[in-house]
Simulated scan of single mutants.
Amino acid sequence: MMFDLTGKVAVVTGGSRGIGRSICEQMAAHGAKVVVSSRKLPACEEVVKGIKAKGGEATAVAASISDKAQLENLVAAARKAYGRIDIMVCNAASNPYFGPLTGLKEEVFAKIMQNNVMSNLWLMNMVGPEMAERKDGVFIVVSSIGALIGSAHIAAYNMSKAADLSLVKSLAMEWGKHNIRVNAIAPGLIQTDFAKALWDNPDIRRANESKAALKRIGQPDDIGGVAVFLASKAGNFVCGQCIIADGGVIGSGAE
C-alpha cells in the first residue's frame, strides 16, 4: 500500500511520450487520476486511450510550457476535471541547440532557461496554494544528470537542469512547512525521442554504456517508477532531494 496513489490527481507536462508518458502510465496503474499534457492534443489523447484501456482514469489537456496562460489553463482544466491537484510533475523541457557554447545564440539560451526553469516556478506558484491549504502535495521536477556534469554538446540544457536542482531545494524550503514535498529526478541517458541525438550516436551511446555500472542506457519505465515512489507514501520523508537514476554513471568511478 505504500505505493498506492488511489484518490490522487496527478498532472504531468510532457506526458505524451518518453519519460512523461511512462510517468502518466505508471501513476495511473497505481491508482492516480492523470492529466496528460503536452503541446499536441492528439498525442495526449493517445496516452489517455491506453490508460483507459487498462482500467485507469485520465484526461488530456494541451499546453505549451513556454506560455504561462496555457499553463494556467492546464491547471484550471485539471481542477475542473477532477476537483484538485495532488501531484504536479514538471517533465516537459526543450533543448533546441546541440553544439558548443561558442555557437549558442542569446535568444536560444533565454528560451531554454524560460522553458526549463521559469515554467516550473510558474507551475509551483499555481498549484502550491491549494496543496498548502490541504497540508499535502507533491511537486516533482525531471532534471538530468547533465546538471552534474559538463558537456561539449548540450551545455546550455545542462545549465538549465542545474538551475532546476537549485530551484527544487529552494521551493522545498518555502513549501515544506505546508507538507508539500518538492523533489527532482535526474535521469541518465534514456532511450526517448527527446534524447535521440545522443543515444543514436554510436560513439556517445557506447561511452555512456561503458561508464554505466549497469552497462546500458535507460528506458522510460526506469524513471516512471521513481516518480511513483516520490509521489506515494513511500516517499513521505523525501524532500528537497535529487534522485539520480542513471544506471550507475555518476559515482561509478569509470573513466
Score class of each variant (00 low, 15 high):
Ile65Cys: 05
Ile244Leu: 10
Ala245Cys: 13
Thr192His: 02
Lys233Ser: 13
Val117Phe: 04
Asn91Ala: 10
Ser232Asp: 06
Gly83Cys: 09
Asn115Ile: 09
Asp86Arg: 04
Ala77Asp: 08
Gly99Ile: 06
Gln219Arg: 15
Arg216Asn: 01
Gly146Ala: 07
Asn208Gln: 14
Met27Asp: 05
Ile149Gly: 00
Leu104Ile: 12
Ala32Ser: 12
Gly247Tyr: 06
Arg206Tyr: 01
Val108Lys: 09
Asp86Lys: 07
Phe194Cys: 14
Asn125Arg: 15
Phe3Ala: 03
Ser252Lys: 05
Val182Asn: 02
Phe229Glu: 06
Asn158Met: 00
Pro96Asp: 05
Gly248Phe: 01
Ser37Trp: 00
Val9Lys: 07
Glu46Lys: 15
Leu148Met: 15
Thr6Cys: 14
Leu41Gln: 12
Ala163Pro: 01
Leu101Trp: 03
Leu41Tyr: 01
Lys49Ser: 15
Val11Cys: 07
Ser16Trp: 02
Phe109Asn: 04
Lys111Asp: 15
Leu5Lys: 01
Ser160Thr: 00
Met113Ile: 13
Cys44Asn: 12
Ala69Phe: 11
Leu104Pro: 04
Ser119Tyr: 04
Ala32Phe: 04
Arg216Cys: 05
Val12Glu: 03
Ile19Val: 09
Phe237Pro: 04
Gly247Glu: 03
Ile145Thr: 14
Ser232Ile: 06
Tyr82Lys: 08
Lys215Met: 00
Val138Ile: 14
Ala60Ile: 10
Val238Asn: 14
Gly128Gln: 08
Gly103Ser: 11
Ser22Met: 03
Asp136Leu: 10
Ile140Ser: 01
Gly253Ile: 11
Lys233Phe: 08
Ile204Tyr: 10
Val141Cys: 13
Leu167Asn: 02
Lys105Trp: 02
Pro187Gly: 01
Met88Gly: 08
Pro96Ile: 13
Cys239Met: 14
Val228Gln: 08
Lys111His: 13
Ser166Gly: 11
Glu174Val: 13
Ser37Leu: 01
Lys40Arg: 15
Ile243Trp: 06
Met2Gly: 03
Ser170Arg: 03
Ala60Cys: 11
Ala162Thr: 02
Ile87Leu: 05
Thr13Ile: 03
Cys24Ile: 09
Gly235Ile: 10
Phe139Lys: 08
Ile65Leu: 03
Arg21Met: 13
Val249His: 05
Met124Pro: 00
Ala93Gly: 12
Phe3Gln: 00
Val75Trp: 01
Lys215Ile: 02
Val142Pro: 04
Lys177Gln: 14
Ile112Gln: 07
Ala207His: 10
Lys52Cys: 09
Val61Asn: 07
Lys68Tyr: 15
Ser170Phe: 00
Asn120Ser: 13
Pro100Val: 08
Asp246Phe: 05
Ile243Thr: 08
Lys233Ile: 00
Ala184His: 00
Ile190Gly: 05
Gly247Met: 08
Asp221Cys: 10
Asn201Glu: 05
Ala132Leu: 08
Arg79Thr: 04
Glu25Ile: 00
Ile65Phe: 06
Cys44Phe: 03
Ile180Leu: 09
Ser119Ile: 05
Ala227Leu: 02
Ala227Asp: 03
Ser37Ile: 02
Val228Met: 09
Asp4Ser: 12
Lys105Leu: 07
Val249Arg: 00
Val47Asp: 06
Val12His: 04
Leu41Asp: 09
Ile204Phe: 14
Gln219Val: 15
Lys68Thr: 13
Ser151Ala: 06
Val141Thr: 10
Leu214Gly: 02
Lys211Asn: 13
